[in-house]
Design a protein around this nucleic acid. Structure first.
Lengths: 116, 116
DNA sequence: ACAGTATGACGTAAGTTTGCGACATAACAA
DNA sequence: TTGTTATGTCGCAAACTTACGTCATACTGT
């Protein structure tokens, strides 16, 4: 029942919310930052860098991968995760559009019907 | 236990995650868009516009207000909610910095140790 | 074949979020 | 005072998240 009403919103709103949710945990923010900074993007290295168990990191990686924000390629024994910079760029533009809409929108002042 | 490890990340990562979480529900995205588009920002009007009960909308409003993304001012009988455009602008810059870091960061290609 | 290493999948415990109905409160009008 | 309207708070039920220990799998080296 919990997310029952999600479908009632526009696809655009849902998409933004989905990506926001992916970034809604410091571990996932840290993972993306780490991948951006590192050349080596081997799963084990990521887990070693974060204050979380390998299992938990793996789960966060799966979550990011589910949204295609990162890609994982099997290289024999290890799996190599990379940022999907193209999609990240798209998402950035989407967020920018949203924030511009929000920051340049009508602000109700004392001259409006609403008194705040 | 669930959020036990949050404190292990940087304040910057936590801040980004906090805001992302606020946007991680289409209802809250919709509320911000509605406030941006409307002059009248009366609580009841927002609830009437969304496919959710007044109670639920009120809760989402409280959540946004807790992060100071919106402000509420009591005007006699009604409460008037406005966007905190200044904070939204700051948040926008924060997200932009993050996305730039992510999209311009090192991408591991075939010339790297990692083969993806 | 066998040990060692790197990963993902499964299951579980604890805590959080969603969504709502039912109250409680406050202002305003009759 | 009594009713109406506008809001927020409380508590509940269902679903989701976080975090991890413990497997199962698969590849590499000996």
């Amino acid at each position: 029942m919990t997310y029952a009403k999600t479908a009632a919103f526009t696809e655009e709103q849902q998409q933004l919310a989905r990506v926001a949710k992916a970034l809604a945990h410091p571990a996932r923010v840290a993972i993306i930052q780490f991948l951006a900074a590192q050349k080596t993007c081997i799963s084990g290295d990521i887990a070693a860098e974060l204050p979380l168990s390998r299992t938990t990191v793996s789960q966060h990686l799966q979550e990011l991968k589910a949204l295609d924000l990162i890609r994982g390629e099997i290289d024999g024994l290890t799996v190599c995760y990379c940022l999907n910079t193209e999609l990240l760029h798209q998402v950035h533009q989407q967020f920018t559009a949203f924030f511009l809409e929000a920051t340049t929108g009508a602000v109700c002042g004392p001259d409006e019907a609403c008194a705040c």
